[in-house]
Design a protein around this nucleic acid. Structure first.
Lengths: 202, 202, 202, 202
DNA sequence: CATGAATGAGGCTTCATTCAT
DNA sequence: GATGAATGAAGCCTCATTCAT
C-alpha cells in the first residue's frame, strides 16, 4: 500500500545481506515454493517481520537474488577467461569457469530455473542478459577471425545450452567437476562439431 | 492407506484421460505450484474427489505426465528422423522435429522443468532416459563412421543442451519456429563447431 | 483466482446459515475489524476453511449480512405498519417497529455502520434502498392528502435520521424501549414540527 | 509503563500538531482500521517512533481527534447561528452551518463513526455532549415561547438525526451543499412536521 | 526530541486431502 | 465410479509497539 523505506544504515545493510544469503541457501536447498519466509528469517537470525523491511514480497527476494547471481556469474566468467590468447581458449576456460561457479553455487540452477514459475520476466532477463553479452563477444571474435562466421546470437544460445547441460549433469547432479575426457569431448564438439573428417584437438 | 483401485472400465479410462489432459494444460499454463487440484478437476469437468480416484497425490499426476511427455517426445523424434540418410541428417531433422514438438507442446518445458522442484527423480529420469538412448544412437553412428569420435555421452548432453535452448528461445518464448538462418547457424555449429577454417554448409 | 462453487445441497445451505448467524453475532458484538474469521467459524462450529466455501472474503460476508438485514428490516417495517389507517399512523407505528427491530437486532447498527469502512458501497446501498422505498411511500401519501407536500425524498431522509438517533440512544445504548413521553415527543416533532402555535396531540 | 513525557516545547507542539492533522486526514480518507501508524508518521514527515512520544496508542490519537472535532463543530455552530433572531432561525442557520462544517471536514463523519468500534465511550461522549448542550438551548427557547413544548432532549436527538442524514447524503456522499429546495423541505419538516393542514413556509 | 530498525503476534486466505453419501 | 462438502494445517504479510542510538 506504500513504498517501503528500505533501511539504509550500516546495520540495515548488514541485515539485508544476511537475509539475501539465507534466501539463497534456502531457495537453493528446498526450492522457492517449499521455502517459507520464516525459514529464511530463522536462518538469518532475525524476526519474520524484518524480512518485509527489505523485500516487498517473497517473490521480490527471488528476483533480487537472480539478478545478483547473474552479476556474479558474469563476473566469474570474465575473471576466469582473462588470460586467454584467443576466443577458442576463452571458450575452453569459460566452460571450466562456469562449472566451477556452478559447483560453488549449487543453488544457482535451482534458483534461476524456479524463477520462471514465479515471474517469467526474471528468468528471461537472466538469460537474455547473458546471451546478449555473449553474442557481442562472439561477434568481436568473428571479426578478428578467431571464429568461423554465422549468426553469433544462435551460437551464443547453443554454447549456453552446452554449458548448461554439462553443469547440470556434473556440477549439480554429481556435485563434481566433469572428468577430463568429458570436458575434452565437450570442448571438441563445440570447437569442431560432430561432423566427421576434421582433424581433432586434445 | 490402501492401493488405489485404479478404475479400469472404459468410463474410468476416459475420466483418467480428461484429468491428465487438464493437468497438462494447467501445469503448463500456470505451473505446478500455482495449480490447485480443483483447477484441474474444474477443467476436466469432474468433481474434486474424483482426482484421487486416479492419482494418489498431485505430485504423482505430475510424474505420470512427465513420463508421458518423455515417451511422446522420443516417439516424435523417431518419427521425425525416420527418412534420414546419415546421422548428420538425423541431427538436422531431429532439431526441427524437436522444435515442432515443443511448439505443439508448449507445456513440455514448464512441466518438465518444474518437476525437479517436486521430486528430483522425475526430472533426472526424464533427461537420463533421453540422454541414454541418444548416446546409444551416437555410438552407433560413430561406429558407422558417420560421426567423429569422442565421448558419445558428452556429445549427447551437449546436443540436448543446444536443442533445449533453441527451443526455449523460439518455441517457448517466441512461440514461433526459429528463422531459417538461425536453424542453419545452429546446425552448422553442431556439425562443424566454432573453430575457424572448416568449410561451411548452407 | 476462480469462482467458488457455492455449495447448494441442503447440508450446504444449513452450513451457510450457521455461518451467517455466527457472523452477525460476532460482527455485532465485537465489530468487523475485531472479529477474526476464526471467531466466526468457531461459533458456527465448522472448520476455518469452510468459511471460504461460502464467502469469497470476510468483507463479502459483511456485505451479505447487511443486505440481509436490510431486507429483514424492510419486512419488519411493512409488517409493523400493516394495520395503520393513514400515513401518520404508519409513521407512528413505523417508529415503534423500528425500535423493536433494533432492540431485537442490536447488531444491526454496528454491522451496518461499520460496513462503510469496509466498502462504502455496502453502506450506501443499504440506506439508498431504504430511502427510495420510503420516498415512494411518502409520495403516495402526499397524493392521498395524508401528508403535507414538499420534497418527499428530503422528508424520507429526515425521518430516517430521526428514527436512527432515537434507536441509537435507546435501543442500542440503553437497550430499552424509549419511555412513552419520548416516543410521543419524537412523533409530535415529526408530525407537527418544532414551530410553536400548532395544537398538540398526545 | 510510565506517564508520557508529553513534550511541551514549541517544536514539540508543532510536531504534535502535524501528527494530529495527518491522523485526521488518514483516518478520514482510509478509516481508522485501515490506517497504519506509519501512514500517519509518513504523512506528518516524522519517524515512526515519534508518534509514541505524543500518543500512548493509536486509539488514543483517535480519541483526541474526536474530542477536537466536537469542540470545533460546536464552535462552528455557535458562530454560524450568532445573528439569528429566534430559535427557528437558529435551527435554519444551524442546519446550514452544519452542512458547511461537514463539507470542510469530510473526515468528521468517518472519524466519529468509526470511533465507536475502537472505544464506544469516545463515540457516546461526542454525541452526548452535543445533545446536552443542544437540549439546554431548546429548553431555553421553549421557555421563551419560541418553540412548542415537549421533551427537549427528544427534540434535540431528532434534530441531530435530521442534520446527520442530510449531511451524510449531501456533504459526504455528494460532496456538495444540498440544493435549496431540499434544504427548504428539510427545514419545513423540522418546523411544521409532516402532518397536513398547517401553513407552509418557503 | 527524534530516529528508524527490529519485533512477533495475529489474521486472512489457500489448498491438498478425506469421507460420507 | 463419482460427488462435493468439510477439514485444518500452513504460509504470506501487516502492523502496533519497543528500544538502542
Amino acid at each position: 500500500m506504500s513504498a517501503l523505506p528500505r533501511p539504509t544504515t550500516a546495520r540495515g545493510e548488514a541485515t539485508r545481506g544476511k537475509l539475501l544469503a539465507a534466501a539463497e541457501a534456502e531457495f537453493g536447498e528446498n526450492g522457492f515454493a517449499s521455502t517459507a519466509v520464516s525459514d529464511i528469517t530463522r536462518r538469518a537470525g532475525v524476526a519474520q517481520g524484518t524480512f518485509y523491511l527489505y523485500f516487498p514480497t517473497k517473490a521480490d527476494a527471488l528476483r533480487q537474488l537472480v539478478q545478483d547471481m547473474g552479476r556474479q556469474l558474469r563476473h566469474a566468467l570474465t575473471e576466469g577467461t582473462a588470460g586467454a590468447r584467443d576466443r577458442l581458449e576463452v571458450e575452453r576456460l569459460g566452460l571450466e569457469a562456469f562449472i566451477d561457479f556452478a559447483l560453488e553455487h549449487q543453488n544457482l540452477y535451482k534458483v534461476v530455473m524456479e524463477s520462471q514459475f514465479v515471474d517469467d520476466s526474471i528468468y528471461r532477463e537472466y538469460y537474455q542478459t547473458l546471451a546478449d553479452s555473449y553474442t557481442v563477444n562472439l561477434q568481436r571474435a568473428q571479426a578478428r577471425g578467431e571464429l568461423r562466421g554465422g549468426d553469433a546470437s544462435a551460437q551464443a544460445w547453443s554454447l549456453m545450452g552446452v554449458a548448461h547441460f554439462l553443469g547440470l549433469r556434473y556440477a549439480i547432479w554429481e556435485r563434481a567437476r566433469p572428468p577430463r575426457h568429458v570436458l575434452d569431448a565437450t570442448f571438441d564438439l563445440l570447437a569442431h562439431g560432430i561432423a566427421p573428417g576434421g582433424e581433432r584437438g586434445a
